[in-house]
Design a protein around this nucleic acid. Structure first.
Lengths: 346, 346
DNA sequence: AATATAAAGTTAATCGTTTAAGCAAAGCAA
DNA sequence: TTGCTTTGCTTAAACGATTAACTTTATATT
């Protein structure tokens, strides 16, 4: 009923003591500060009676710690990031932290804005899925000694902590899987991005072909601008099918590319996997429910998110000294979309 | 380079004035506070030089306003909520607010925890997609005069502001659509929930059948526990197909139910729409990419989110006096999964 | 008895900002 | 000269909590 929030001062008044004493008691520092037993219990009781809730703001202002983590992702409405966000949220809560999420739209300037806003809000640290052209921003955070952990994407040239999937290996596995299943004309659609994880996915694909003695065709690899996925993917697929050695298998570098690509493939009336085998990064219901379930690379989202939080919290509490750079394995979930190719029996 | 954050005090020192003056200038109160022209520009210049960023914490502590909105949803990893979250995030940012998102898992106690944490963080207000059994919590917020706007779900018995889809009409439209397309045995799978929006969806379905002179069968409506979706949906579908008048069309009350249901339907080898027509609430890629694209009820997510933020901001700035209760229409997107039933020609 | 130690609590500064109230100097009118 | 207004700026309290440093009283030690 009491309109005003109850503060430490109110408790002090009722107990007839100073605010300092109340603070000591409520922070469990009675021993160090030699507070009397009776008065301590009295204070605690009054606090309970008044349903005292300490002010986060005041605490933070004093301590410089907000117990808040900034999570910077590309887009919360993308299932991959939404799942990451959920894991981070839960794990952070377990550690007494609150998360503020911001979407950068894979855009350097938005990403910078976000960082500024969050720094201004004095988040204690960041978990960042870096976006295109944000290398300088990460360098800057490093220089300013702002604690952060990179998630899923990292910059090999910057010495930062990170938790990431082994994108190279994942892609390599996907390529090898397709070759083993007798596909010989394997295409890949990736983002037109300088980000290292994308380069690694591409390199993994290329090495897989090379190591398996498949002569890659230059038109089998297409890079699509992130700003125009649908038109880019459409053009890429059309061209990959029109060349002299048309593809019989296609690897999508991301979930969004796959969704866009599958739409187009449906429209073209192409049959998966008989006309075209499919493997994709990412995971979602759509891969399960497609008429021909899609083989995909399942990233260890829960572990990635949990580890990132764990690492960051350790940094924040100075329990982490040496740099942590963690790579995790993606799992290839084999479904019908890439099953062994039927060879023509003449 | 300067290690410490620059405060108003630093500026005051350099300018040789008091902190009060700096504050006046930086808040554009030079006129009211009769600050000299020269000194004002000097202060502004120094602030720019030092790249001064006011401390949100201090401001908030003083003003009691954090310019933060708490968004309480069931689960950020669910596409519907993820999309809502994205819209709310963007719209809030446009208004100078930061959003803290929390997932309640459709669970009253988690929801209460969330509210407590966020109130303690002194968010200025809430946007809430209420969860099961949270009616009392909403009443409580109302009593405490904590500003909030309900989103998508509301309680008819509590006088609150809300922005919601017209669930009844949406469901009614879906039912009518199926009847018009010659389906006569129409089932519905809903959540076993007391929440009004779910009751409305059910009522809409029932009224649609009644108004179209379809005699409903008691086993055509199944309520599934939210804690065991997969098993519940499986049992529901099995039973709806096993009865004497098996269903030829099925309406899913939510996206999650549909995903679960479609999985099972696939496993059973049931053909959509020939064996069973499908309509579902929600929207997602999976509905587009299913072998037979799914007819769905498209909720005006962007408008819902934007309006909720707009309303809340108005409340927070006292520009809203009378209660706002807004219902928006869902759009029925007709796809192949509910196309006109082939009637047997003998 | 003199002094040291311990016990129990208070004072006041601090975090960074806002803002009501105050003060001094100058301008103006009578 | 006296008094009033205006201008330009400062003082200090407040928001709510923490904490180093201090005071006071009681008890123990030599």
């Amino acid at each position: 009923m009491s309109k005003t929030k109850v503060s430490i001062k109110d408790i002090a008044q009722r107990a007839g003591v100073s605010t300092a004493l109340v603070s000591y008691v409520l922070n469990g520092k009675e021993k160090e500060s030699r507070v009397g037993q009776e008065i301590a219990t009295k204070v605690r009781q009054i606090a309970a009676e008044l349903n005292y809730q300490p002010s986060h703001l005041a605490k933070s202002l004093r301590s410089g710690k907000t117990h808040t983590i900034g999570l910077v992702i590309a887009d919360i409405s993308n299932p991959f990031f939404a799942n990451i966000a959920r894991v981070v949220e839960d794990e952070a809560k377990r550690n007494g932290y609150t998360v503020i999420i911001g979407s950068s739209d894979e855009n350097a300037s938005k990403s910078q804005d976000l960082l500024d806003v969050l720094i201004n809000r004095q988040v204690d640290g960041f978990i960042i899925v870096s976006s295109e052209d944000s290398e300088e921003q990460i360098r800057c955070l490093n220089d300013k000694h702002i604690p952060f952990v990179l998630l899923d994407r990292y910059f090999p040239d910057i010495p930062t902590d990170f938790v990431s999937t082994d994108h190279y290996k994942a892609s390599y596995d996907a390529g090898t899987h397709l070759v083993r299943n007798r596909y010989k004309h394997i295409g890949m659609i990736a983002y037109d991005s300088q980000l290292f994880h994308m380069q690694e996915r591409i390199r993994g694909y290329q090495d897989a072909l090379r190591d398996n003695h498949v002569q890659a065709h230059e038109h089998w690899l297409k890079r699509v601008k992130i700003s125009a996925i649908d038109t880019g993917v459409k053009a890429a697929i059309d061209s990959m099918l029109a060349i002299d050695q048309p593809i019989d298998a296609l690897l999508f570098a991301t979930y969004s590319l796959a969704v866009s690509g599958l739409k187009h493939i449906n429209k073209l009336g192409i049959k998966v996997p008989d006309d075209l085998a499919i493997v994709s990064f990412g995971q979602a219901e759509v891969f399960e429910l497609y008429y021909c379930p899609i083989t995909y690379l399942k990233q260890p989202i829960v572990l990635l998110g949990q580890t990132a939080v764990e690492l960051l919290v350790k940094k924040l509490t100075h329990k982490l000294t040496e740099p942590a750079q963690i790579l995790m394995k993606a799992e290839l979930i084999e479904r019908a979309s890439s099953k062994t190719k039927k060879t023509l029996t003449i």
